[in-house]
Amino acid sequence: MIEVNKLTKRYGPVPAIEDVSFSVRAETTGNIVGFLGPNGAGKSTTIRILTCFQPATGGSATVAGYNVFTQSMDVRRNIGYLPESAPLYPEMRCREYLTFRGKLHGMARGDRERAIRRVTERCWLGEFIDRPISQLSKGMRQRVGLADALLHNPKVIFLDEPTIGLDPTQIRETRRLIKELGEDHVVFLSSHILHEVEQICTHTIFIAGGKILASGAPADLRQEISAGSRLIAEIKGEPQAVESAVKAIPGVSAIECETSDAWNRLTIEANGTGDIREDVFKLVSAKGWSLREIRREVASLEDFFIKITAEQRGARV
């Protein structure tokens, strides 16, 4: 659905994105792809190029089988796009706006009215479909923008930070809607919120500093970073004895111990993907110590994100 090959965009001499390549295919990546990165990473620039709003400086891209540069009109007929700020014409009424957009997509009157009814229902626009857009709240505008993106039933839908500026209920509703959309459309959404991407996306592409750093299913990415897990255990016993005994468990690479009221709080770093909780428990029971907590911290995308951005900052300095 989306093929991007060495895409580069420079604003003057400064590259916004450099040699960005990735591909989105329903069979390998699933239908909902998250484009993740910190602010200023080049997410919006990439989306603007893919939606034919801006031409790239170099590289090539195809969307829905059409080249973004040479078959711009064909691409535009097959995509829906909701920019970050959900820009709309404030003086128009929702229905009027959707009618205008439908006409731009060349939809005949009957089709258009049916499509407007369909998106009205889908995006819960019912109560304010005849209200002027200037009177709508940010969340409602977002829905109108989304309705517009769905109007012509496009193959690919681009959503730039779709949940930004919404309240928690609206965020939940929007996420549910995106999941539903994934059933019949390819959804390409950008976000800087990690758990959002973890929750709704079938595939994640990481971008930072204008470069693709990693891509894969959210679970695989987590695996990649959780090579090595962290265990928290609280054990009652002689601090030195506990520390040295736990350190002797195979797979433990580092250990930190804090003691208070005879309880030792251990932070254990383990190599590999194996689980050493059982070993710790067996050790404790063999020695006759007490155990009041044991838990494994699985690295989240958050950790990955922080790690990557820290590495980047390091590289720049």
């Binding site: 603007r48 709003f53 535009r76 007929r77 709309l88 404030p90 997509h105």
Partner: peptide, 14 residues
């Protein structure tokens, strides 16, 4: 200014 140029120029209109 309002950004509507983006939605306008990603519709099939040159």
């Amino acid at each position: 200014r309002s950004g509507t140029i983006e939605t306008l120029m990603t519709a099939p209109i040159n």
